[in-house]
Design a protein around this nucleic acid. Structure first.
Lengths: 365, 365
DNA sequence: GGCGCCACCTAAACCGGTTTAGTGACGTGT
DNA sequence: ACACGTCACTAAACCGGTTTAGGTGGCGCC
């Protein structure tokens, strides 16, 4: 037999459809023994609610969307999404929400519009934020709850669009400081795309520490997070007359490619050149030399983002009726404890070592 | 204003709800100028159908599910999913279907049951097939259309459960033959889990070629596709009294870790040891030495799997009514051209070279 | 003993679509 | 001129839930 419906349960229990609905949703107005009988009957028939029907009557989709605004080939070696998705899902599934994925290589605006137009999602997650990203404004206009995956930089778009994520900058600062402590003074940077906020913030942190330390802000090459671009950037840096003694890469993939280029040119890592990555990909610890890099807990980040999004979705019970607005206290869901994401931290391995020419003038006794 | 409904469109166009539905679905019974008028009105109001409502009345969810039966930490460095998902999505989105993701670390049976119980999906994709996998039987029992992502080995479960994917074996055979051609006779294998079909098939192919060539079937270490396990397995192989001169790894991640171990022990790759991987991850070409490996077109695979699944879903118009069964010709969707996946092929780079002790007795003039 | 009230439950409307049955106008054949 | 068929469309049922408005019975109370 096909899936039993609520009507089947009602008939079997000898009550009305409405009674069954009340009983199943723990609402008052049903005596406790009737409630128990209904629940028993429902369980014995193996009844489960139809997500679609429920969504239709409550106007809630019980699903959230994640739009990946990347070309398939860029998605290929990504260190972020699989873990992030895993984190999201653990939270979403235990709260009865589904995760809808959409890959929108180009026109991601259309993808968002479509998700909301078809009523498929209650909210979305936005990744790979650009500087001057137009998506937050779009989502605010659509009044679609959204978590912008990235550090909260105090911007504000709409009441239901918030940022969630750890700031990369402190860990990058820690990385550069680590290199300074090792006596490096020519510290280069292979940056991610500067129109991406995380590309920009990593570069900003690198620059800031050097500036504060009174060290020359070394050469920087803008790359695109791909291995290929990392290799090119490294070649470029190693061709410089004044070769850097250390290179801070914006991610592990570029750092690994850079390691290959250095090896090919006979530049020894770490004695002649220190390199650092970002992500702590699984392979980082197994490279030779093992890569000094920054570890982020992406799974926890995913969990936090999911919790935050569900808060937003639940925060406004009924929209556009306007009635609920008068209390003004959406703050009851504002607890941030479980939506904090653990900070990234430096993991020192073998790819960093004291600078070759020891200009290291003993800041230790 | 909120999203316009079909009723709003009907009122605005001065016709009934039904007429609008007919017009929008290109069904006969509407004069062409009325149809045009309705379409114009709908377009000008910015109307789009609600996926949920449509799903409810047609009993089709317009969504398919992908259950990832892996722990988050295993998902982390996966070379397969991001590309595969990208491939899936390109096809699904242009056909109006959504992709639902679920991560079920342990009990994936429950995940499938839930997806079908809630009526969220029209079909699912099953990855990471085990030998004696119980999922195909479950899906057959649930009568849920499913594409089993892997080579078609001729098994048959239910009428709506089919395999889709390229066979790994030919490319692995090509790899081993490549090593034989280079004069290697002690060719080891670091295998994936043997309860996974792709782990087993790669090992089987390796073994078969050696056997057919009359070469000793070298040592094999079963690992789990992780970098850590690849490193351990490599150490174990290099500790052998009769050290292999080549190692065939079941994936790039383990091969890369193996490269690190070899380097650490001062075993030069490729002059003393040849190694090969599988996947052609983005970093493979940028390692030193660059990794000889097998390239698979995972994006195309995803596209093919999505097309095949949609064929299955569309194949049976109405289920459980039984009426449609008498024609028996589900074959009209059976065209396989667009659901073929390009075969994997060997990419020779720098990590393979002639065997060190030249027992290579000139098969070339 | 009649009143009101509360607890418990039923009937029916509703969400936004699809689909079937039915209706009126018009054209056609004999 | 009349039955008949077709076309174009409307009205209403339906999918499977939720929610609101009503209705019934039992009880306490004056």
């Amino acid at each position: 037999m096909a899936r039993p419906t609520i009507t089947d349960v009602a008939r079997a229990a000898g009550v009305s459809k409405g009674a069954v609905s009340f009983a199943l949703n723990d609402r008052p107005g049903i005596s406790s023994d009737t409630r128990r009988r209904i629940l028993d009957v429902a369980a014995s028939m193996g009844w489960t609610p139809s997500a679609g029907a429920r969504a239709l009557s409550t106007s809630r989709a019980l699903a959230v969307g994640l739009v990946l605004a990347r070309a398939p080939e860029v998605l290929r070696a990504d260190a972020f999404f699989p873990s992030f998705i895993a984190g999201l899902e653990t939270v979403l599934s235990e709260r009865g929400h589904a995760l809808l994925l959409q890959v929108a290589e180009r026109d991601d605006h259309a993808a968002y519009r479509r998700l909301v137009a078809e009523g498929r999602v209650d909210g979305v997650l936005v990744t790979d934020l650009h500087v001057d990203d137009t998506r937050p404004a779009l989502l605010a206009e659509l009044d679609l709850p959204a978590v912008l995956v990235g550090p909260d930089l105090g911007e504000s778009w709409g009441p239901r669009q918030v940022a969630c994520g750890a700031d990369d900058a402190p860990a990058v600062r820690e990385t550069v400081q680590h290199l300074l402590d090792l006596g490096h003074t020519r510290i280069a940077h292979v940056a991610g795309p500067q129109q991406l906020v995380h590309g920009r913030s990593r570069r900003g942190a690198w620059e800031q520490v050097l500036r504060e330390a009174g060290v020359a802000v070394g050469p920087v090459v803008e790359a695109d997070f791909s291995a290929e671009s990392g290799a090119r950037a490294t070649a470029q840096l190693l061709d410089l007359a004044e070769r850097p003694t250390a290179i801070v890469y914006a991610n592990d993939l570029m750092a690994t490619a850079g390691l290959g280029v250095a090896h090919e040119r006979g530049v020894d890592v770490p004695t002649e050149l220190s390199i650092t990555g970002f992500d702590d990909t699984e392979i980082a610890a197994h490279l030779r030399p093992a890569l000094t890099t920054v570890r982020t807990d992406v799974v926890a980040w995913g969990r936090a983002a999911a919790r935050r999004l569900l808060q937003l979705v639940d925060g406004v019970s009924t929209d556009s009726t306007g009635e609920t607005g008068e209390t003004g206290e959406t703050g009851e869901n504002g607890g941030t404890g479980e939506t904090d994401v653990p900070p990234a931290r430096l993991v020192v391995r073998a790819s960093t070592a004291p600078a070759p020419t020891l200009t290291h003038q003993g800041d230790r006794p």
